[in-house]
């Protein structure tokens, strides 16, 4: 039975390869790595996730808590990826629960769709979006420990900073500056809901928040900023050396909402839901954006910022 099932999978994979013209780029230099295979459109070269032992592997998800079928379908892709790319954590960039937040909503909009991941010990670290109640910070599975903003280090060279961009009080901004200043980690990754850079026709870049936060990111060598709010996937061209991603495509889709004329898009995907998977190895971060149908819609590798000599 198992052999027959495997044969079907192989046949299906071959069929998909023929249909999509998938190609893989062998980055080859990483020892002990088992690259994660995925599909990508023929026009672009796929940069696979190295899947190296000891690396930090994580996913990014935003604007997902609808409890509706598309959210579950994307969650299935996340679980499928986890089967071959054993990521440790998922960073949530807000709008974790849409609408009511009764106990059954936590179940329907979070615990059930991500049950395979939760059962496998994957930890979710939440930031709050504009639709989220502050009480979510007490929810055990969001790992916020009662705080609206917090920082954690899953590996010694990486530190994540969760920021509450919906209600950014001055003391929170001071906290972020103090934390960034004190951090000696190679990778400083800040995640929150409202994007400083986005090509969204609906929301777009939050210029006021940018005025406040960007100087801190530049001063303290933040390498990566992860946001949601606009309901699509967008990799923004590096802005003043900082990499920005909008991953607000976890459950809600705003189809065709990327303004192609914004001039800041490195890669955009606004025709289906998607999440992002990433792997940090030394100074490099490999990333794949994966759609609801399992297609890799973006991939690449970026390098962390380093302090000026």
């Amino acid at each position: 039975m198992q052999t027959r099932h495997r044969s079907y999978v192989v046949l299906l994979s071959l069929l998909l390869l023929i249909l999509t013209g998938t190609n893989y780029r062998d980055i080859g230099s990483i020892t002990g790595a088992t690259p994660v295979e995925a599909q990508q459109s023929s026009a672009e070269q796929l940069v696979p996730l190295p899947n190296k032992g000891g690396s930090l592997k994580f996913c990014v998800l935003g604007d997902f808590g609808t409890g509706e079928r598309p959210q579950y379908q994307l969650a299935e892709q996340m679980a499928a990826l986890h089967g071959r790319f054993n990521y440790d954590l998922v960073v949530l960039v807000g709008d974790n629960l849409y609408g009511s937040e009764r106990p059954q909503d936590f179940q329907q909009k979070f615990e059930l769709p991500y049950k395979p991941l939760l059962d496998s010990g994957v930890k979710f670290y939440a930031s709050l979006g504009n639709h989220d109640s502050r009480e979510q910070r007490f929810y055990k599975l969001f790992n916020m420990e009662g705080k609206l903003y917090y920082a954690f280090s899953p590996k010694s060279n990486v530190r994540f900073f969760a920021f509450d961009s919906t209600y950014p009080e001055p003391e929170e901004i001071k906290w972020l500056e103090d934390e960034l200043a004190a951090s000696k980690n190679d990778w400083k990754i800040v995640f929150f809901h409202h994007p400083l850079y986005s090509s969204g026709k609906r929301h777009g870049s939050d210029l006021r928040l940018r005025e406040v936060l960007e100087p801190l990111f530049l001063k303290y060598n933040v390498s990566l900023v992860l946001n949601g709010h606009d309901h699509f996937y967008e990799r923004v061209k590096p802005q003043k050396g900082i990499n920005y991603f909008v991953v607000g495509s976890g459950g809600e889709l705003r189809a065709g909402n990327i303004d192609r004329g914004s001039g800041i898009t490195a890669k955009g995907f606004d025709t289906d839901l998607a999440f992002m998977a990433a792997e940090i190895i030394a100074d490099d971060m490999y990333f794949n954006a994966i759609s609801r149908t399992g297609q890799t819609v973006d991939s690449g590798v970026l390098t962390r910022r380093k302090p000026a000599p």
Binding site: Y98, G99, R102, N130, H131, T166, P168, R208, L209
Partner: peptide
């Protein structure tokens, strides 16, 4: 936001529970 309920659908009352059907809105720093 597009998930903002139509104001006419919500009857505001002091001392009432915030309506579960109404999403919370952003409040910009300004």
């Amino acid at each position: 936001d597009e998930r903002q309920a139509a104001p006419s659908a919500v009857k505001l009352r002091v001392n009432a529970r915030y309506p579960d059907i109404v999403p919370l809105t952003s409040v910009p720093p300004q």
